[in-house]
């Protein structure tokens, strides 16, 4: 992402009297794993196709095999949305970044951004530079480190594929 152009847009929102409504991050997975739960797949989370049992050389049978075939901890993309609100209006700035890319903080313009930025650093592992109030990784206490990193999400999906949760 172009940090300078991005910050210029954020500054414009600040000058025009908008307030920061949220910063949201989505962990984007490759199409194969995003098809998790797609219609036509075998049972919930591919119950009939346990991970790792797809015969070599053939197309993976069911979503479980597709999830298992993904490289764990590989590179991926995050989609970030900075949402701004003013009265009835709501607008976003959207960016797609590669995991490992550094994102500039917007706390300079929106003081409340520090909380969102600390959160996305702890939960998604995105490095945000220049956070107004750096909580040094102590905002959340989670059992999984960086629970929304690509590796962690894939690991959870793979575990679900191996032991599916039955709908109640």
């Amino acid at each position: 992402m172009d940090g300078t152009a991005f910050l210029a847009r954020v500054e414009q929102y600040h000058r025009d009297g908008w307030r920061l409504a949220l910063i949201n991050v989505t962990t984007v997975l490759p199409a194969a794993s995003a098809a998790h739960g797609a219609p036509g797949a075998h049972g919930a989370h591919g119950a009939e196709a346990p991970a790792g049992e797809a015969p070599a050389g053939e197309a993976p049978a069911g979503e479980a095999a597709a999830v298992a075939a993904l490289p764990m901890g590989g590179p991926g993309v995050f989609e970030i949305a900075w949402g701004f609100a003013r009265d009835r209006e709501f607008e976003t700035i959207r960016e797609q970044i590669e995991a490992g890319t550094t994102v500039p903080s917007i706390s300079e313009f929106f003081g409340a951004a520090f909380l969102y930025e600390n959160e996305i650093r702890e939960l998604f592992g995105i490095n945000v530079t220049g956070i107004g109030v750096d909580l040094k990784g102590q905002l959340y206490k989670t059992s999984t480190r960086v629970p929304f990193s690509h590796a962690a999400v894939k690991a959870r999906l793979a575990a679900l594929a191996a032991a599916p949760v039955k709908p109640s």
């Binding site: 949220l22 098809a35 739960g37 797609a38 219609p39 609100a85």
Partner: peptide, 11 residues
């Protein structure tokens, strides 16, 4: 504020 993204699957 809620953000929901759906991708054409059950999840």
């Amino acid at each position: 504020v809620y953000y929901i993204k759906a991708n054409g699957t059950k999840y």
